[in-house]
Lab assay of single mutants.
Amino acid sequence: ENVVSAPMPGKVLRVLVRVGDRVRVGQGLLVLEAMKMENEIPSPRDGVVKRILVKEGEIVDTGQPKIELG
């Protein structure tokens, strides 16, 4: 899985990584606000952040790609 998608609709509060960052499985990639709760979205695997496809403040839909890992 190279693309991390939104598990639920919500607002991107914070992006916790930058392009080029090495990430580990379970590491937080971003914080999504859904139903007035903050949810940290974890990396599904070890890898390197290739692209960030969302911006802080953006509203995302379920299944929308957010971060691409290499």
Rank of each mutant, 00 (worst) to 15 (best):
residue 15 V to H: 01
residue 18 R to K: 13
residue 13 L to A: 05
residue 11 K to P: 00
residue 28 G to H: 09
residue 58 E to W: 09
residue 12 V to Y: 00
residue 46 D to A: 11
residue 18 R to L: 08
residue 56 E to I: 13
residue 17 V to F: 00
residue 1 E to H: 13
residue 9 P to W: 11
residue 46 D to Y: 08
residue 13 L to F: 02
residue 3 V to T: 11
residue 56 E to C: 08
residue 45 R to N: 07
residue 44 P to Q: 05
residue 31 V to Q: 02
residue 56 E to S: 08
residue 52 I to L: 06
residue 1 E to P: 13
residue 43 S to R: 01
residue 67 I to T: 02
residue 37 M to L: 11
residue 52 I to F: 03
residue 68 E to G: 04
residue 42 P to C: 14
residue 36 K to A: 13
residue 28 G to D: 03
residue 20 G to H: 07
residue 9 P to F: 10
residue 36 K to F: 13
residue 35 M to P: 03
residue 48 V to I: 13
residue 41 I to Y: 05
residue 58 E to G: 05
residue 11 K to N: 02
residue 55 K to M: 11
residue 45 R to W: 14
residue 6 A to N: 03
residue 36 K to Q: 14
residue 20 G to F: 06
residue 33 E to G: 09
residue 8 M to V: 09
residue 57 G to P: 01
residue 22 R to V: 13
residue 42 P to H: 10
residue 44 P to K: 04
residue 61 D to Q: 14
residue 68 E to D: 05
residue 2 N to V: 14
residue 26 G to T: 03
residue 33 E to V: 11
residue 29 L to R: 01
residue 5 S to K: 13
residue 3 V to N: 06
residue 67 I to Y: 03
residue 29 L to D: 00
residue 44 P to E: 05
residue 37 M to Q: 13
residue 15 V to F: 09
residue 30 L to R: 00
residue 5 S to E: 08
residue 60 V to S: 03
residue 53 L to I: 06
residue 7 P to D: 10
residue 3 V to D: 04
residue 19 V to T: 07
residue 2 N to S: 13
residue 33 E to C: 15
residue 44 P to R: 04
residue 37 M to V: 12
residue 61 D to P: 06
residue 29 L to M: 06
residue 47 G to H: 03
residue 54 V to E: 01
residue 58 E to L: 04
residue 49 V to D: 01
residue 13 L to H: 03
residue 9 P to I: 08
residue 58 E to S: 09
residue 61 D to C: 14
residue 9 P to N: 09
residue 64 Q to D: 10
residue 58 E to H: 06
residue 35 M to A: 11
residue 67 I to C: 06
residue 50 K to P: 01
residue 3 V to A: 07
residue 62 T to Q: 13
residue 65 P to E: 06
residue 10 G to R: 03
residue 24 R to I: 12
residue 1 E to K: 12
residue 36 K to R: 12
residue 11 K to A: 04
residue 8 M to S: 09
residue 35 M to H: 13
residue 22 R to I: 13
residue 9 P to E: 07
residue 31 V to T: 07
residue 18 R to C: 11
residue 49 V to N: 01
residue 37 M to A: 10
residue 64 Q to K: 06
residue 64 Q to E: 06
residue 63 G to A: 08
residue 36 K to H: 14
residue 49 V to S: 00
residue 50 K to Y: 11
residue 6 A to K: 04
residue 49 V to I: 12
residue 1 E to Y: 14
residue 13 L to T: 08
residue 7 P to T: 13
residue 14 R to S: 05
residue 42 P to V: 14
residue 66 K to P: 07
residue 11 K to L: 09
